[in-house]
């Protein structure tokens, strides 16, 4: 049970969890009736999924620089997802969906 094996298991576990959440998010988008609930599913599930995925990759990365880059990517995507969700919601409101 060397440290290496532990790392591999952790990576697989984390990325697996991430994928599950992505799957959930996608299912949400497909199943839910109106825009708002879809948005809800999308933002929640995918962001969580992304978090796990980034963690898994960070564990797998060799150099600290890569970990920093991954963290930057995670932060940026979160920021973008949030803003886009807001904008889509407002334009849906403007178009009169309740």
């Amino acid at each position: 049970m060397s440290v290496e094996l532990l790392r591999q298991i952790a990576v697989y576990a984390l990325t697996g969890a991430g994928l599950v959440f992505f799957l959930a998010g996608t299912l949400g988008v497909v199943r839910f009736p109106d825009t708002f609930s879809r948005l809800h599913a999308l933002t929640k599930a995918d962001n969580l999924g992304l978090g796990f995925l980034t963690l898994g990759l960070a564990v797998n990365a060799e150099r600290w620089a890569d970990v920093a880059k991954l963290a930057l990517i995670w932060a940026l995507v979160l920021l973008a997802a949030g803003t886009v969700a807001q904008l889509v919601a407002r334009s849906a409101l403007v178009r009169g969906e309740r």
Binding site: L76, L79, A80, G82, T83, Q86, L87
Partner: peptide
């Protein structure tokens, strides 16, 4: 609004 905020941050 959110967009102008985002527009300053990114």
């Amino acid at each position: 609004g959110v967009l102008s905020g985002f527009g300053r941050l990114l």
